[in-house]
Design a protein around this nucleic acid. Structure first.
Ligand SMILES: [Mn+2]
Length: 591
DNA sequence: CTTTCCTCGTCGA
DNA sequence: CGAGGAAAG
């Protein structure tokens, strides 16, 4: 649902943007919307669990669009279900079932047109669908992460901790979450509109001068969000006006009570929970390889399971390994998703831009820790002893003791979020697994996964299964999400906003790119292409921030051209193209 | 004027 | 998921 009507009211500060403007940047992608859109072109197969790869094609095309422009994507997947959203989720599930039934009906009646229409409305992006894409992402060395719960929170965490420069999504919730930079409505050309929290004050329709992030969030909750239905007659306009006057939700509620407005007794309590869900929902921390709250690490889930889920080896609902069946991975295992096969919508142009090759996953950005170890304030709500804790005891200890890793820094950096978190109840030590850092007893019940009852819903006992998961333990596979070197260099030049850096890259890359593009004909094109391939934008070596960039780029770049493109895709270009490209093949991404 | 409810489109040959 | 519009406070 998002925040109803929010985006239209922010239209005045939505700035058109093309992803080429993000060259040298790293972005988090709300993969669900891509998968869902992509699945529309094969909705019947998706619904029936039949093997297909169209949705994966769609996603990989988008991925390559980003890579083509020197943008490094991190694909973020939704994970476990949040109890607070289970009602909405059940509703949607019922609607899907209805449409599926209708589709079958129409199909049996020979009305295939109507059938497909219903299939589209019945498509469900299940974890196994996501798993199919993840297999390809592994092959292509694309960063990705499966959120413990909502992708929204995970993406916001990545943005706030500076692990990504922006988030690509369609969901207005990201604004409520406090994401500083969001790209909406990105089309297949890479064109979209950008939201920046930093210019929120310039908005026209609604005046946000004097608004803090906290006030913005509370306004959104007041107007109605996924976690809490709004009071009758309360929409964005009124919520905004009230927040502008009273500055905080509790004062607003007090005023409402005085104003003959019936405020349900549970409303205020739910409001607090909603705030916690926005601000302290669990996310996966790629640095410690464990789940943490937005700011504080927790260990209620065995670390290796947390890691397994995040990298897509384990089903976020069942915590069990995926069954290799209708994952449609085999359909695409021949790997024709390389960047070289990418064809910008407008024209023919295949450039190699192995944006994230030879990623040394062991490179971590300690700068991003700054966003995490921040606070671990004392517990507030007493709450009764947490029984969940011991259940995970057997396996929870070996990883980093509590916040050892997270606390490597002291005091200073806190500034990042401190101002925004005033009044927030910091996460409890070991709290319940309900997605937020609260010990509110009524949520002690099973965490997510209301539907998939393969797992015991009695508390947080996942340890039993962990024997089955051993295999994935030391998987040396591909990269999950992790930061690389560019993070480091970024941190120091952070203040400068890395403008210089991107500018430099832009100039160099742009020039060759456009030069290439401007050349109208194929003979020349081929040559230029070769040159370009050689000194392509080595995004993975964002050390470019420094100055050695130019050299790095032009030297150690591996030329990888995949001839499979021509085998699997219609060859539209002339034959010369093909020949020349083949000559360039020196390596294969598939080791 | 504001909120609420409803339908429709998203992809793509 | 949102956009857009119509209907209802
Ligand atoms: Mn959302």
């Amino acid at each position: 649902m998002g925040i109803q009507g929010l985006l239209p009211l922010l239209k005045s500060i939505m700035v058109p943007i093309h992803i080429k403007d993000l060259q040298g940047c790293c972005v988090a992608v709300d993969t669900y919307s891509w998968l869902h859109k992509g699945a529309l072109s094969c909705s019947k197969d998706i619904c029936k669990g039949q093997p297909t790869s169209r949705h994966i094609d769609y996603c990989m095309h988008r991925v390559n669009l980003l890579r083509h422009h020197g943008v490094k994507p991190i694909l973020v997947f939704d994970g476990g279900l949040l109890p607070m959203k289970s009602e909405q989720e059940n509703k949607r599930a019922r609607a899907r079932k209805e449409n599926l039934a209708r589709a079958m009906e129409h199909e049996s009646n020979g009305n295939s047109a109507a059938a497909y229409e219903c299939y589209q409305k019945a498509v469900d992006i299940s974890p196994s669908v996501a798993y199919g894409l993840i297999q390809v992402l592994k092959q292509e060395n694309i960063y990705y992460v499966v959120a413990p719960y909502e992708a929204d929170a995970q993406m916001t965490f990545l943005a706030i901790s500076k692990q990504v420069d922006a988030v690509i999504t369609e969901d207005s919730d990201l604004i409520a979450f406090g994401c500083p930079r969001i790209i909406y409505k990105m089309d297949k050309f890479g064109q979209g509109v950008e939201f920046r929290y930093s210019i929120l004050q310039q908005n026209k329709e609604l005046n946000f001068t004097g608004f803090t992030k906290q006030m913005l969030l509370e306004m959104c909750i007041l107007s109605g969000c996924d976690y809490l239905q709004s009071l009758p007659g309360m929409g964005l306009k009124r919520a905004h006006a009230l927040m502008k006057k009273f500055k905080s939700y509790d004062k607003v509620i007090k005023h409402l009570k005085y104003s003959t407005v019936a405020v349900s007794p549970s409303y205020e309590e739910s409001f607090k929970k909603a705030i916690l869900t926005f601000q302290h929902q669990r996310v996966y921390d790629s640095i410690t390889e464990d789940i943490c709250y937005t700011l504080t690490r927790v260990t209620s889930l065995p670390q290796h399971i947390a890691k397994g889920i995040a990298r897509g080896d384990l089903d976020p609902f069942t915590k069990m390994p995926f069954q290799e069946e209708n994952v449609s991975a085999e359909l695409v295992s021949d790997g024709n998703y390389q960047l070289k096969t990418f064809k910008p919508e407008g024209e023919r142009k295949k450039l190699d831009l192995p944006a994230q090759k030879n990623l040394l996953t062991s490179y971590f950005c300690f700068a991003s820790l700054e966003a995490k170890r921040k606070f671990r304030a004392p517990r507030v709500t007493p709450s009764h002893p947490n029984p969940m804790k011991e259940t995970s005891g057997p396996v929870e200890l070996e990883p980093v003791p509590e916040e050892a890793a997270a606390c490597k820094i002291n005091g200073s950096p806190a500034a990042l979020l401190d101002s925004e978190n005033l009044g927030i109840v910091p996460p409890a030590k070991h709290s319940v697994d309900n997605g937020v850092a609260t010990n509110s007893h009524e949520y002690l019940e099973s965490p997510s996964n209301g539907l998939h009852d393969k797992e015991d819903l009695v508390g947080d006992t996942r340890s039993p299964q962990h024997a089955l998961l051993q295999k994935s333990r030391h998987s040396i596979h591909k990269p999950c999400i992790a930061l690389h070197k560019d993070r480091e260099c970024r941190s120091d030049t952070d203040a400068g906003e890395g403008k210089m850096r991107t500018e430099n890259i832009k100039v160099i890359v742009r020039s060759s790119y456009f030069q290439n593009k401007s050349v109208k004909e194929s003979d020349l094109e081929n040559k230029n292409e070769m040159l370009l391939v050689k000194d392509d934008v080595a995004m993975d070596a964002c050390k470019s921030a420094s100055d050695a960039e130019g050299k790095m780029r032009t030297q150690n770049r591996k030329v990888i051209v995949r001839s499979s493109y021509f085998q699997h895709k219609p060859v539209k270009e002339n034959d010369h193209d093909k020949e020349n490209v083949k000559l360039l093949v020196k390596d294969n991404i598939y080791h």
